[in-house]
Simulated scan of single mutants.
Amino acid sequence: MKKYLLILLSCLLAQVAMAQDVIVKINGDELMARVREITTTDIIYLSADTTDTLSYKLAKTEVFMVRFANGTKEVFTENLPAETVAKAPIADPAYMYQKGRQDARSYYNGTGALLGSAASVFLAGPVGPIIIGAVKPRARYNKALPAVSLQDPNYVKGYEKQAHNRKIGKAALGFGLGTGVGVLYLIMSVISPGK
C-alpha cells in the first residue's frame, strides 16, 4: 500500500512541477514560463524550457495577458490600442433616456435634500429649501450607476431629469417638515412659557 501511495504522490508532484504559466504578448506570441512576480512595470518569470533559476524580466507594456497554471488569467487592457478596447454600444436614445429615469427612481433617494431642507428652514426660511431644490444632482457622482451607461448622454439626461424631480419633491417635503417642527416648537413655547 505504501508503495502505491508513494507512486501516486510522485505523479502528483511531477504534475505540479510541470504546471506552467503562459505569457501572451500583444503581438500574439506565447511564452511558457513560471511567473514569479508582477510589478507595476515588469513581469518577472522563470523560463519553463530550462531548469536554471535565472529570472527574466518582460515589460508589462509588451504583454496582453498572463494565463496562470491554475486556470486564472490577468489581462492588461491598458496595453491595448484604443481601437480595440470595448466601447459602450450605441443604444436607442429614447430607451437610454427612459433607462436613466428608471435608474434615478432606483438609485437616487434624495435624503440629503430632505434633511438639508428641513434644517435650512430654521436658518434661511423658505429660501434654503428653494436653493437646495434648484441644484440639479449629477449622475457622475452616483457610484451605483453602471459606468457604461454614464457614457451615453441620453441616459445621463434622463437620470438627471428624474433625480432633479425627486430632489425637488424631497426639498418640498423637508420644507414642510421643518416648518411643522418650527410651528410645533412655537406652540409648545407659548403654551408652557419658561417653567
Results as ranks from 00 to 15, higher is better:
77 T>C: 01
24 V>A: 13
112 G>V: 11
124 A>Y: 10
103 D>C: 15
154 N>T: 03
63 V>I: 11
133 G>M: 10
110 G>H: 06
84 T>I: 15
80 L>M: 12
36 R>G: 09
55 S>H: 11
130 I>S: 13
102 Q>P: 02
80 L>D: 03
108 Y>G: 13
49 D>K: 12
70 N>A: 13
27 N>W: 08
146 P>W: 00
119 A>P: 00
86 A>Q: 05
63 V>H: 00
116 G>F: 02
124 A>C: 13
131 I>P: 02
143 K>G: 14
100 G>K: 06
27 N>F: 07
132 I>G: 15
99 K>F: 05
74 E>D: 09
92 D>G: 09
59 A>H: 06
53 T>Q: 12
141 Y>D: 10
120 S>D: 12
24 V>C: 06
105 R>W: 10
128 G>M: 02
82 A>M: 02
31 L>C: 07
111 T>Y: 08
29 D>H: 05
128 G>P: 00
59 A>G: 03
29 D>S: 15
37 E>C: 04
32 M>Q: 12
102 Q>N: 08
39 T>Q: 02
136 K>R: 15
106 S>V: 12
123 L>E: 05
97 Y>M: 03
102 Q>F: 06
24 V>D: 02
67 R>W: 04
100 G>Y: 06
71 G>I: 11
89 P>A: 07
104 A>T: 05
73 K>V: 09
54 L>V: 11
140 R>Q: 12
73 K>S: 08
148 V>F: 00
82 A>R: 10
63 V>R: 00
106 S>D: 06
26 I>M: 01
151 Q>R: 08
53 T>F: 14
88 A>V: 15
149 S>W: 09
107 Y>M: 05
77 T>K: 10
62 E>L: 10
105 R>H: 10
142 N>W: 01
142 N>L: 04
77 T>P: 07
76 F>L: 11
100 G>I: 05
51 T>R: 05
65 M>K: 15
31 L>H: 05
124 A>T: 07
69 A>Y: 03
153 P>D: 02
93 P>W: 00
46 L>R: 15
57 K>Q: 06
49 D>T: 14
71 G>Q: 12
35 V>C: 07
52 D>L: 06
53 T>I: 14
47 S>V: 12
85 V>M: 05
147 A>Q: 13
143 K>N: 09
154 N>W: 06
95 Y>F: 08
131 I>E: 10
87 K>H: 06
55 S>G: 08
43 I>Q: 01
112 G>F: 15
101 R>V: 03
79 N>V: 09
38 I>M: 03
147 A>G: 07
88 A>D: 01
126 P>G: 14
77 T>H: 04
141 Y>V: 07
107 Y>E: 15
115 L>N: 13
95 Y>Q: 15
45 Y>H: 15
45 Y>W: 05
81 P>V: 09
50 T>I: 12
33 A>C: 04
101 R>Q: 10
84 T>Q: 02
152 D>G: 04
40 T>Y: 14
63 V>N: 00
92 D>K: 05
31 L>M: 09
148 V>R: 07
68 F>Y: 10
50 T>E: 12
129 P>Q: 05
76 F>D: 13
85 V>Y: 05
